[in-house]
Design a protein around this nucleic acid. Structure first.
Lengths: 386, 386
DNA sequence: GTGAAAGCGCTAACAG
DNA sequence: CTGTTAGCGCTTTCAC
C-alpha cells in the first residue's frame, strides 16, 4: 500500500475530505486475473472457442459472424435487425454465456442506474418500510438501490452525497434531518436529489412528507377529547424538521384548548431506540412535578419510542391507559402487537418511499421540470393505549 | 420506446430471463446533456475556463499544465510525483471542483466496488442488523452496498445474482434460504459470493452462521429444566436450513429427555411477521389437543414470531409465563421490550454480517484461497417469558 | 518525475 | 439492414 501521508490530499479530492469513509485505502489491490495486457498486441491468434467466461461483445460478434454494432443492437432491442441475424446473435450469446459488461455500458451511456438512498438509521422499522417503497419503484424502472446509513451524521452524509458527483449514483433520496440537508442543499441544489420525510420547502428540492403539524395536533386533540389535560411530549432531536413541526402542533393544540403547556412537559431525545423511550418514561413520571401532578398522557413522536414508554411505564407499575395514556407515531407493525396496542398516527410509509423514488425518477428524466413538493395524508389509528 | 415484443429476448440475455426485474424498459431515455458529440471534432478551441461542471481529467491536466497521467497519479496517491507538481494539480482540482468519474475508473480497473447483499426481507429487524454489520465492514474497505430484497423468491434471487456476471457488483452476500442458494450454487459456485446464516456446508461456498441445532436444543433444555413437558415449536418455512436444523435440535432434545414429541406440536409458517405468530398461537392453544392437554411452552424460531405469540396469547387470556412459557430466537431489540420480556437465543447479528463481509472481501482479494465456514456462538438469554 | 498513447467494453453516429 | 469507427474518462505501461 502507499504511504498514508501521500494519500491524504487525493482522498480528499475524491470526495471524502476529513472523512475516512470512501476508499480509505487509496486503491486496494485490483482483482488479479481480470486485467489484460494493454500493450501493442496486434490481436492474438484468436482461439476457436473463447474462454466462455469474461467474454466481450466482440467475441460474440465474431462467433455470430456479425459486427459488434449488430450485437449491441440485439442486446438493446433496436428494431433494425433482421430476425435471422438476431437469432444468430442470440444463439452465439446463449452458447457463450455472454453477459453484457455494465461497467462499460455505464461509462458509455454516462449513467450508473443506481439510486442512492440515505437513511439516518435503517435499523428503525419506519425507515425500513420506506426503503422498501423506494426499492420497489426503483426496480420497476431498471434502477438499483445503493443504501447508505448515515447515522444522521453530516459528515457521512456529505461524503455519501459526493457519490453523485463522482457518478456512482444517478440520483439520491435523502431521509436525513432537514438541518443536515440544508448544509448540503446550498452547495448542491443542482444535483438530482429529493427529500423524503425531512425537507425544507424553501430549499427548492422536491420532497414528499406528511403534514406533521396537523398530525401532532390530531394526536393531542384525541387525547384532549379523552379528557386529558396534562399531556407530555417525548420528542426526538430538534434537528429534525418533523420534531419542530410536531412540537408546534402539540403546543398549539394545547393552547387552543385553553391549556398552557409547561416546559417540563417536553423532552427531547437524541435517539429513537426503544430504550430511549423506556428511560424517558421513567424520568417523566418520577419527576416531582412541582405544584402539578404527574402527566396523564404521553405523546411520543415515534412508535419505537412509544413502545419503550410502554415498557418503562410497566416497570414502574403504571397501567396504560388507566394511569397514563400513550400515543405513538408512524404505525409501524409492532404498534399493534404491544400491550396495550398503541394508538398512533399512521404514516403511509410505503407510499412515502414510492413517491420519493418517483419524484427522483421524474427529475432525472427531466432535470428542468418544476419540482413539486407533495404531502401525503396521515391517519389517527385508535387502539387501546388511550 | 421500442416495441415490447422486440425486446423480450435481449432482456433475457441481459440476465433477467422470465424476470421483469432488471431494466424492464429496454433503455429508458439517457440523460440528455451529458452526452457529447462523438464525431471527428479536431478538438474545439478550448475555452479559457471550462464549464467547471462535468470536467474530465484532461481538463484538469490542461489547467495544471501537466499530463493526464500525472493527474491520475496524484488522484491515486502514487509516490512518483514531485511535490510541486502535485500541488499544481491539487490546485487545479480545487479550482475546478473536479470529481473523478468512477464510471470510467470502474471500467478501466474492471471492478465496481459494490457488494451485493441479498436478504429475504429487510423489514425484519434481524436482517436489518446483519445488513448493518455488512455495510460497516464494506465501507471500511472502500466498498458500497447494493441492497436487494429478494422476498425469498428464487427468480428474483437469480436475477439479482446475475448482477455479478454483468459486473455491476464485485461480490455478493446471500441471506436467502439454503434451498434457493443450492439452485444457484450449482450454476455459479465460481462466482465470488458467500452465504450468511443460511448455507450448505457441502456447497463449497464460504459461509458464516451459528449452530442452529445446538441453539434450539439449548432453548428446549431450558424449558425442560423449568419443568415443561409439552413444548411446541413454531417454525418457519422448512426451506430454510435453520428451520430444519432447529427442528432437529428441538426433536432430539425432547427425545433425549424421554419425551416423544407429537406431530401436532409443530407448526410451519411461511412468514415471520408478528401477525403470523399471533394467529399461530391462537391455533396452537385452541386446538383440542385430543387426549393431551394444551402445551405449556412455545418455542418460536424468531423473536418477531414470539412477539406475535405473546400478543396472541394475551388476546385469548393466557398469561405468560404462568399459563404458557415462550422462548424466542435472535434477540432483536424488541425482545426485551415486550411484556413479558422474552427469553430468547441471542444471535450475534452484527458479527454475522461483519464476518460475511470479511469473508467475501477475503475471497475477492484471493479467489483461490480456501474458503472457511465459520460458526459464531449463540447465547441463551433468560428473561421473564419463561 | 513526467508524458504519450493504448485500450477497458460498450453505444451510436454515419456510411454503405 | 449491417459494418466501421470514434470515443465515454480513466489507468497504466513504456519511453524519455
Amino acid at each position: 500500500m502507499s504511504k498514508p501521508t501521500s494519500k491524504a490530499k487525493p482522498a480528499a479530492v475524491a470526495g471524502s475530505r476529513a472523512e475516512p469513509l470512501a476508499r480509505p485505502d487509496a486503491r486496494p489491490e485490483p482483482r488479479a486475473g481480470l486485467r489484460r495486457q494493454p500493450r501493442p498486441q496486434p490481436r492474438p491468434p484468436e482461439p476457436a472457442r473463447p474462454a466462455a467466461e469474461d467474454l466481450s461483445i466482440a467475441g460474440v460478434a465474431r462467433q455470430a459472424g456479425v459486427s459488434v454494432a449488430t450485437v449491441s443492437r440485439v442486446l438493446n432491442a433496436h428494431e433494425n435487425v433482421r430476425p435471422a441475424t438476431r437469432d444468430k446473435v442470440l444463439a452465439a450469446i446463449d452458447a457463450s454465456g455472454y453477459r453484457v459488461n455494465e461497467l462499460a455500458r455505464n461509462l458509455r451511456t454516462a449513467e450508473s442506474r443506481l439510486l442512492l438512498t440515505m437513511v439516518p438509521d435503517f435499523g428503525n422499522p419506519f425507515y425500513a418500510e420506506i426503503v422498501r417503497g423506494i426499492d420497489s419503484v426503483a426496480r420497476q424502472h431498471g434502477y438499483f438501490m445503493l443504501l447508505c446509513d448515515t447515522g444522521a451524521d453530516a459528515g457521512r452524509e456529505r461524503s455519501y452525497f459526493d457519490l453523485l458527483r463522482r457518478r456512482r449514483a444517478d440520483g439520491a433520496i435523502c431521509l436525513d434531518p432537514a438541518t443536515i440537508q440544508q448544509a448540503l442543499g446550498e452547495a448542491s441544489s443542482a444535483l438530482p436529489w429529493v427529500a423524503c420525510c425531512e425537507f425544507d420547502p424553501s430549499m427548492g428540492v422536491p420532497y414528499v412528507g406528511i403534514d406533521n403539524y396537523r398530525a401532532a395536533g390530531d394526536a393531542v386533540r384525541h387525547l384532549l377529547a379523552r379528557g386529558h389535560r396534562r399531556i407530555t411530549l417525548i420528542n426526538s432531536d430538534i434537528d429534525y424538521l418533523y420534531a419542530r413541526q410536531r412540537q408546534q402542533g402539540y403546543l398549539d393544540a394545547l393552547t387552543e384548548a385553553g391549556i398552557t403547556p409547561l416546559d417540563g412537559w417536553r423532552m427531547n431525545l437524541n435517539s429513537l431506540d426503544y430504550e430511549a423511550g423506556t428511560s424517558a418514561a421513567a424520568v417523566l413520571m418520577q419527576t416531582t412535578h412541582a405544584q402539578n401532578a404527574a402527566p396523564t398522557a404521553i405523546f411520543a413522536v415515534s412508535d419505537t419510542l412509544a413502545t419503550g414508554v410502554l415498557h418503562g411505564l410497566r416497570s414502574i407499575g403504571k397501567r396504560v391507559p388507566d394511569d397514563v395514556a400513550v400515543v405513538g407515531f408512524d404505525d409501524i407493525s409492532i404498534a399493534s402487537q404491544v400491550d396495550p396496542p398503541l394508538t398512533t398516527i399512521a404514516q403511509p410509509m410505503r407510499e412515502l418511499g414510492e413517491t420519493a423514488a418517483r419524484l427522483l425518477l421524474q427529475r432525472l428524466a427531466n432535470p428542468l421540470a418544476n419540482v413539486p413538493g407533495v404531502l401525503l395524508p396521515h391517519r389517527l389509528v385508535i387502539r387501546e393505549s388511550t
